[in-house]
Amino acid sequence: MMPAEANGRQYFIIGGGGQVGYFLTKALLEAGHEVVLLDKDPARIDTLNRELGDVVERGDACEVSTLDRVGAERADYLLAVTGEDEDNLVMCQMAKAGFTRSNGKACRTIARVNNIANIPLFHKLGIDVIVSPTQNILEAIGTELPLPQIAQISPPDNDGVQLIEVRVAADAPARGKTIESQGWGSSVRPTLLIRGTQNFTPEPHMALQPGDKLFAVVTPEGRSVLKRALLGKAT
């Protein structure tokens, strides 16, 4: 999972001592890694230190002086797991832009992102790994429940391009019309059509029917276009 140093022991700085930060610290310590957990709330720090041993420091991980104090220049990973997207973004950017490690590489940054609309921005700004509980739960809903008419199959990439699945509604404007007559342009690239138990490679001449499941690679605009065309008036 992690690039091994001499003995595989890595140094992690964790920003945010909530539940996620707590369990991460615990798990990483048990795995033999070096961890410092940063939080701003003295009462919370006391609780955490009692549970975890003295690995919790009081400080704002968005401040260069705090990161410096805990040795950010030798950190292998910064894990930004507060509940605030803006704090997570800034601590990652500070750790990357504010410090150079002796091997010349910036530390790897992993950020928790709550607002899924911000995922493309985090990608674009060079955050190495993005974890979005909201996104994960939405995806789980998409695969668990039979009813939702639109599901994200892959998270958006840097440009917001993603694979989605849309179920053609009974009253969809696009129903009964061929794919080529939809006028979707390059923002929607149909890749798979599932009708009942059969699946097809979408061909331009194929007409869409209510109940069809269309998988398509879409840009953010394409996603809106597809929603308008395939979802019913009720949505």
Partner: peptide, 16 residues
Amino acid sequence: NGDNRNVMAAQIAKHQ
């Protein structure tokens, strides 16, 4: 009043 909010919104405005 939040530095982080300001700089995040600025980056959304600029890059997105």
